[in-house]
Design a protein around this nucleic acid. Structure first.
Length: 1010
RNA sequence: GCCCGGGUGGUGGAAUGGUAGACACGAGGGACUUAAAAUCCCUUGGCCUUGCGGCCGUGCGGGUUCAAGUCCCGCCCCGGGCACCA
């Protein structure tokens, strides 16, 4: 069967036809490129399957073996689905905006786009070498203006939308304006989510709305827009002129440079994700995502039911949220967050100095610190009192930093008898504590039980908690002092960054009123600037741009956060070249939503929440026909690194006397590093005499070394303890763990004089850590591929264990999968199989290639079909490690059967193709096919070949297996029982006594109870 | 503290309530070879036994069942997420 197109040749193929991964993989990667094997067309008629990977940020470090794990799994599914006849979309791109490129730009002046380009090219090279079936024509990069044009467009859609509580969906802002013009703003509409705190906009009539000036109208609308500008609390660092993220602040100073940081309220762009809280929660129900991930999102959204209660203060009131309105009669004080807007208003003159001082210091503690230091109870009395809505009694108003400004209303009604935090605050400041529940021991702690009976005086006394909650809410509503309410922990997302390397926000300011850039003028391109740092006046880098204006008005200078572009990229892959729309209606309708999404669990509450939020929003506004982006999601586990640890003496030097020079301390850094065995490190407290002597010897030797370096000083050197440290895995022999001492000395200047406590090889100790540069345990896939090939790498990553589980990378084990591929190859070749060509052989052009058209035996067909069945089932449940095992079993068994038959081997090539595409293509071609193996239909297993004639029953006594008896598979329960009991060996074990009971599970087991 | 995962040989791991340890690594022994590489074969959970065989064994303690790694109850340990959330 001659191929229909010229065949590429395998230059490195020798006559004996050994498995040569380098030649095969090079040949096929080139062929795939040239033949566009993985191009996905716009045929919208076939059944589709969309397999998506979380795209990477192209960092300068390149890929390590942990990165491609998920990509390999998804690639197997993509290829498998293609064999199954699906039209498969399996794209890849880059999350190209990000901090590292910007930091690098600040240091070197190199444009982040250049760095990104270089890094992406390196990623591409590495990815290509692994043999993925990505359609690179569909690559997206978030930093590409043709891409971020649509990110900006979506932002403008958000800006142009509000969340209509009546329709429970996002609507155009024009509809809100129309409503204001006819109905004004009243009741529920007037109380809207502004993200941080429930805020009352204020009611107005239609006539009043019409009388508002433009500025006022726009201010009002800001309270409703889904992308809005508002005052928000930020970590402001005046010295750096920038806002810092929570993790960039430590102990009130910036992590970089140690400059003071203060909490400051600044205008910030935010997205009103809180409007979607309930739908984001409800939508989780139908998703095939892992339970732990869904749980993480539920926790993050943090829905709680309760009531809002208003405590009158003079002619105003303080509103609190509580989940326990049943404890209202136990309220003994109110606590406001230090940031609460009413703190100033309710502070009496007598208390003002104290309160202001407290607020100032509390505000400047970062949120993280405030949350970490639970034991530090601080607060101050404002001097004012509120009225209890039920009893009318005075309730003192305190300020305490245990109350968070960003949750609920930023104020709590304190019930020390029922809430432990309130209890501790009350104890600390000597405030009264009222028992609210029967059986509470309020001298010891608050009683937070939710199944108790209320005992505090009032109309709730004697009621069970759930009933008391309902009753309390009824009363509050009757009095107009509050109502039932649902509260969420989720906060609106800050959307502005004081950075250069991100999407410009397409907003300009006309007399300080934010206005959207016309859609026709998108994208707003990132300007060229001279330096990538904030300006001298503390403005973001974009303020450096010349003429950063639109229609003569200043443009917004902050840029979007990293997650903007990744919130919708899955849509762009569907139609990446579209200039009219983010993706065509047909493409979106056909390809969406994603059928399988694979990525790391670290994105559980960041990316994956925004990703769902944007999808729901675009759905609301009619741009998408679905409102969840990914039906199924799988988190791949982390591949950990095995690091090598060494141990050394911690050496201290002292100088005592100086004869003819000034007294000098020998710098311990100048002393050689003394490597000691782990034994010494472990048993430092009780060292053996031999070890102590050895250390003593080294000390005296060190003393001389030290003194040589400090002429005139006489001192002594002592080893006070030992410490552990990581050494580069490159310097350690994989098998023996012996350290390459010379290499170690050459690796760093301060290791140059390293010496050993004991003669002989130095043996390091394994430890499993995260794979990272820091632990010097990074394994590069390029090295693995050079040695074993991409197919081996792919198989091994899958073979390592269940996809979702974290597991350490151990290069040793790879030999097994490499051996498997060679054995598989040898099934098709005479090279090393020991099978000599015979006369009937149908030979295909390579010398050693030997596959016959003989009729396979029953045993051979059984191996084949058992494998096809197992592999298909395993791919469907993403259990790739077990499918690799099955291939190994099949290969071992067919090898033992000396099977060289096409009818058996050919289907196996197709089944293996998703896992090891290069070797499969090569064998497929050698089998005489002109078309790529990727076009072959999936070989279905035929159950008839798996039917067993007989079954070997394990015979157990009281559940313990004692012997095996083989019976025809057709035998029924009773027949098996009879046959078993007739067996002499069984009789012998029964010792003539009749069995109590005999359980026969056909084709499984026989259990005899005696 | 709360919420999710997970604990099985020297190692990675396998096992619809039905023969625990598949497959692979490592280790030991052997064949082929002048040798090496490659390949192939055997052994490999622990203890007892010359052998046949026996006893124990899936973190710990109970329970359900003819039968439990698997189901239920109570603990311990490890990993991850959340956390003054009112």
């Amino acid at each position: 069967m001659p191929p229909s197109r010229p065949r590429l040749t395998l230059a490195a193929c020798s006559a004996t036809m050994q498995y040569d991964h380098t030649a095969i993989e090079g040949k096929w990667q080139q062929a795939w490129r040239e033949r566009n094997t993985y191009r996905v067309d716009q045929d919208f008629t076939r059944p589709k399957f969309y397999v998506l990977d979380m795209f990477p940020y192209p960092s300068g470090a390149g890929l390590h073996v942990g990165h491609p794990l998920g990509y390999i799994a998804s690639d197997i599914v993509a290829r498998y689905k293609r064999h199954k006849g699906f039209h498969v979309l399996h794209p890849m791109g880059y999350d190209a905006f990000g901090l590292p490129a910007e930091q690098y730009a600040i240091q070197t002046g190199q444009h982040p786009a250049t760095t990104t380009e270089v890094n992406a090219a390196r990623y591409r090279e590495q990815l290509d070498r692994i043999g993925f079936s990505f359609d690179w024509d569909r690559e997206v990069r978030t930093s590409d203006p043709d891409y971020y044009k649509w990110t900006q467009w979506i932002f403008l859609q958000l800006f142009d939308s509000w969340y209509d509580p009546r329709a429970d969906q996002a609507r155009p802002i024009s509809e809100l304006i129309a409503r204001f013009e006819t109905e004004g703003c009243r009741g529920q509409d007037a109380s809207v989510l502004t993200g941080d705190i429930e805020e009352f906009v204020g009611e107005f009539t239609a006539a009043e709305w019409k009388a508002f000036d433009e500025r006022t109208r726009q201010m009002v609308l800001q309270h409703f827009r889904l992308a809005y500008l508002s005052e928000a609390w930020v970590n402001w660092c005046p010295a750096l002129g920038t806002v810092l993220a929570n993790d960039e602040v430590k102990d009130g100073v910036s992590e970089r440079g140690g400059h003071p940081v203060e909490r400051k309220r600044m205008p910030q762009w935010s997205l009103r994700i809180t409007a979607y809280a309930q739908r984001l929660l409800d939508g989780l129900e139908g998703l095939a995502w892992s339970e732990s991930l869904k749980e993480a999102q539920r926790n993050w959204i943090g829905r709680s039911e309760g009531a809002s209660v208003r405590f009158p203060v003079g002619d105003d009131f303080i509103e609190v949220f509580t989940t326990r309105p049943d404890t209202l009669f136990g309220v003994t004080f109110l606590t406001l967050a230090p940031e609460h807007v009413l703190v100033g208003k309710y502070t009496t003159d007598a208390q003002r100095a104290e309160v202001e001082a407290y607020v100032k210091q509390a505000k400047n503690r970062s949120e993280r610190e405030r949350q970490a230091e639970v034991d530090r109870i601080t607060g101050v009395f404002t001097g004012s009192f509120a009225k209890h809505p039920f009893t009318g009694e005075d309730v003192p108003i305190w300020v305490g930093d245990y109350v968070l400004a960003g949750y609920g209303t930023g104020a709590v009604m304190a019930v020390p008898g029922g809430d432990q935090r309130d209890w501790r605050f009350a104890k600390h400041f000597g405030l009264p504590i009222i028992a609210v529940t029967d059986g509470a021991d309020i001298d010891k702690e608050a009683d937070e039980r939710k199944d108790a009976t209320i005992c505090s005086e009032g109309f709730l006394k004697g009621l069970k908690v759930p009933e008391a909650i309902r009753r309390a809410i009824d009363e509050l509503e009757k009095l107009g002092a509050g109502e039932g309410r649902v509260n969420f922990r989720l906060r609106d997302a800050a959307f502005g960054r004081q950075r250069y390397w991100g999407e410009p926000i397409p907003i300009y300011y006309e007399d300080d009123i934010p206005r959207p850039v016309d859609v026709a003028d998108l994208p707003v391109r990132l300007p060229e600037i001279d330096k990538y740092q904030p300006t001298e006046t503390g403005e973001p880098p974009l303020a450096r741009a010349k003429d950063w204006t639109y229609k003569g008005f200043p443009l917004e200078t902050t840029t979007m956060p990293g997650w903007a572009g990744s919130s919708w990229y899955f849509l762009r892959y569907m139609d990446p070249g579209n200039t009219e729309r983010f993706a065509s209606e047909e493409a979106v309708k056909y390809w969406g939503p994603v059928d399988l999404y694979v990525g790391g669990s670290e994105h559980a509450t960041g990316h994956l929440l925004y990703f769902r939020f944007w999808t729901k929003f675009l759905y609301d506004r009619g741009w998408l026909p679905f409102d969840e982006p990914a039906k199924k999601l799988v988190n791949q586990g982390m591949i950990q690194g095995v690091s090598k640890k060494a141990y050394a003496l911690a050496v201290v030097s002292h100088s005592t006397v100086a004869i003819d020079a000034e007294s000098r301390l020998i710098d311990t850094k100048q002393l050689p590093l003394v490597l000691v065995p782990k034994r010494v490190y472990d048993s430092w407290a009780e060292l053996s005499e031999a070890d102590r002597d050895a250390i003593g010897n080294v000390e005296s030797m060190l003393r001389e070394v030290g003194l040589e370096r400090c002429p005139g000083a006489s001192g002594y050197v002592t080893a006070t303890s030992s410490f552990e440290f990581h050494v580069d895995i490159q310097l350690v022999d994989d098998k023996s763990n012996e350290l390459d001492i010379d290499g170690f000395r050459a690796s760093r200047p301060d290791h140059a004089n390293a010496i050993l406590l004991e003669d002989g090889p130095y043996v390091t100790v394994n430890e499993v850590d995260k794979m990272s540069k820091r632990w010097m345990n990074v394994v590069n896939p390029d090295d693995i591929i050079a040695r074993y090939g991409a197919d081996t790498l792919r198989l091994y990553e899958m073979f390592l264990g269940p996809l979702e589980q974290s597991k350490p990378w151990d290069t040793h084990g790879i030999e097994g999968t490499y051996r498997f591929l060679r054995k598989f190859w040898n099934l098709f070749h005479t090279g090393n199989s020991g099978v000599e060509p015979v006369a009937s052989t149908h030979r295909v052009d390579h010398d050693s290639f030997l596959v016959t058209d003989d009729t396979p035996t029953k045993a051979e067909l059984k191996v084949l079909h058992a494998t096809l069945k197992k592999v298909e089932e395993d791919i469907e449940r993403m259990s790739f490690n077990t499918s690799v095992s099955q291939f190994m079993i099949a290969t071992n068994e067919l090898g033992a059967l000396k099977c060289t038959k096409r009818a058996v081997l050919e289907p196996l090539v197709v089944a293996l193709a998703p896992f090891a595409p290069h070797i499969a293509e090569e064998l497929w071609e050698q089998l005489g096919h002109a078309e790529s193996v990727t076009t072959a239909p999936w070989p279905a297993h035929d159950p008839q070949y798996l039917v067993e004639d007989s079954f070997s029953y394990p015979i157990s006594f009281n559940g313990k297996t004692r012997l095996q008896l083989e019976f025809p598979a057709t035998l029924g329960k009773e027949e098996v029982e009879a046959a078993v009991l007739a067996d002499p060996e069984v009789q012998k074990r029964l010792e003539g006594k009749p069995p109590k009971k005999v359980i026969v599970v056909p084709k499984r087991i026989v259990n005899i109870v005696v």
